[in-house]
Amino acid sequence: MLEIKNLHVKLEEEDKAILKGVDLSVEAGKVHAIMGPNGSGKSTLSYVLSGRDGYAVTDGTATLDGEDLLEMEPEERAAAGLFLAFQYPVEIPGVGNMTFLRTALNAQRRARGQEEMSSADFLKTIREKAKALKIDSEMLKRPVNVGFSGGEKKRNEILQMAMLEPKMCILDETDSGLDVDAMKLVADGVNALRDAGRGFLVITHYQRLLDHIAPDVVHIMANGKIVATGGPELALEVEKNGYASFESEAA
């Protein structure tokens, strides 16, 4: 589903290489996790895949179901089925959460040549999904992420994911800042979406999330590269011994 080959990325404004040859492929139906030290390039990878400005791809490719992601505008990537749950969700004063989600959903549908969702269907669906994530209707009416606590913002990201039903979901530290119960809600949200047609790339620092969302494959990123790939046991090893052994490999 998601194929990343030899991806090299530097900052657009300065000569600073951040990704130095990332190879990664996520198959449909699988959950891949990426762990790695601070500053190793995990968020950068997620931003480059979703099309944020400020980065220059100097080599390599990234495709989603064979389509070149790097050639597309961010909105086209979303319509193609890519979703990024942000490490730092953005506050948008003045834009209601509901308006935001309905606009996004219908824009994606239009881009895919589908009918827009009626207001009634939209309301029914969002109420159901919000309830599962314990997001109350008052929060839905508020401006996007404004005045939300850290944990509420993360839950709101998962609500967006549940509404948009993307085929490739990237979660950047969605577990950070969550209390135990919220972590469970988020994990349930992710697990509810797991199916044969959907891939996940879960960026995390903690084994704790992976206890709830059992990954099929775990990657270690260090210094802009994937330096180790293995099963769930790799995450346990990191939890125990840290990244020291991987970092020496990357250097």
Partner: peptide, 9 residues
């Protein structure tokens, strides 16, 4: 960018 990443042109 946040809006565009959700598919809004």
């Amino acid at each position: 960018f946040y809006l565009r990443s959700r598919g809004v042109p």
